[in-house]
Amino acid sequence: KTVHVNGVQYDFDNPEQAERFAKEMAKKAGLQIQFHGDQIKIE
């Protein structure tokens, strides 16, 4: 899974790890999470 945070890309082999990371980042920055198939976007 790939997580995009403000244009920066983070790759994870483990989907659960990717989602946990995305939730942490979104919570910290007060941003929205969008799921697009294999990609998670935080903007």
Rank of each mutant, 00 (worst) to 15 (best):
G30D: 10
I33Y: 00
K28W: 01
M25N: 04
Y10P: 04
Q32D: 14
K28I: 14
D38M: 06
F12A: 03
N14C: 15
Q32Y: 00
Q9S: 09
H4V: 15
E16V: 07
D11T: 10
H4F: 15
L31V: 13
Q39P: 07
A29V: 11
Y10G: 04
D13L: 05
E24C: 15
A22D: 08
E16D: 10
G7H: 02
F12I: 04
A26V: 03
K41S: 12
V8Y: 08
G7R: 01
K23A: 11
Q9G: 06
E43K: 06
K27L: 08
F35P: 11
V8G: 04
P15A: 13
K1Y: 14
P15E: 13
H4M: 14
D38G: 03
I42F: 06
D13K: 00
K28L: 13
A26N: 05
N6A: 08
R20M: 11
G7P: 01
Q17W: 08
F12P: 04
A22W: 08
L31F: 08
I33K: 01
F21L: 07
L31P: 04
H36R: 01
I40K: 03
I42P: 09
M25S: 03
F21T: 03
K27M: 07
V8R: 10
V8N: 05
N14Y: 07
V5M: 10
K23R: 09
H36E: 15
Q39D: 13
G30Q: 05
D11M: 06
F35Y: 13
Q32H: 11
N14I: 05
F21C: 10
H36N: 13
E24V: 00
A18F: 08
L31I: 08
P15M: 11
K1E: 04
F12L: 10
E43V: 13
Y10C: 15
E43I: 12
A18N: 04
G7N: 05
I42K: 06
R20Y: 04
E19Q: 07
I33D: 11
P15K: 12
K1T: 13
F21P: 03
R20N: 13
K27I: 08
E24A: 07
A18C: 10
D13S: 06
G37C: 15
E16P: 00
I42L: 13
R20A: 13
Q17L: 11
I40F: 01
Q32L: 10
Q32P: 04
E16Y: 06
I40R: 01
E16L: 06
K1Q: 09
G37Q: 08
K28D: 10
K41F: 15
E16S: 07
P15T: 11
F35R: 12
E16Q: 09
G30W: 01
Q32V: 14
M25T: 05
I40M: 05
K27F: 01
K1L: 14
M25V: 10
D38K: 00
Q34V: 11
K41E: 11
E19M: 14
A22P: 03
A26T: 01
I40Y: 00
Q39F: 11
E43L: 11
F12R: 00
F21E: 07
R20L: 10
E19T: 03
Q39I: 14
F35W: 13
Q9F: 07
Y10H: 07
H4L: 14
G37K: 06
E19Y: 07
H36P: 13
Y10M: 07
F12N: 02
N6V: 03
H36F: 14
R20P: 00
D38Y: 00
G30R: 02
K41M: 13
V8C: 15
R20H: 13
V3T: 02
E43P: 07
F35T: 12
T2M: 06
D13F: 01
Q9Y: 08
K23Q: 13
Q34G: 08
A22Y: 10
E19R: 07
F21Q: 05
Q9L: 08
F12Y: 02
F12S: 02
E24L: 00
A26R: 01
K27P: 04
D38Q: 03
K23H: 10
I33R: 00
Q39G: 09
V8F: 09
K41T: 14
G37R: 00
T2V: 09
Q32E: 14
E43W: 06
A18G: 03
I42Y: 02
F12G: 03
H4Y: 14
T2R: 09
I40V: 10
H36I: 14
I40P: 06
K23Y: 04
D13I: 05
E43C: 15
P15I: 13
A26F: 02
Q17N: 07
P15G: 08
Y10W: 04
G37A: 03
E43D: 11
A26S: 07
H36Y: 13
L31S: 10
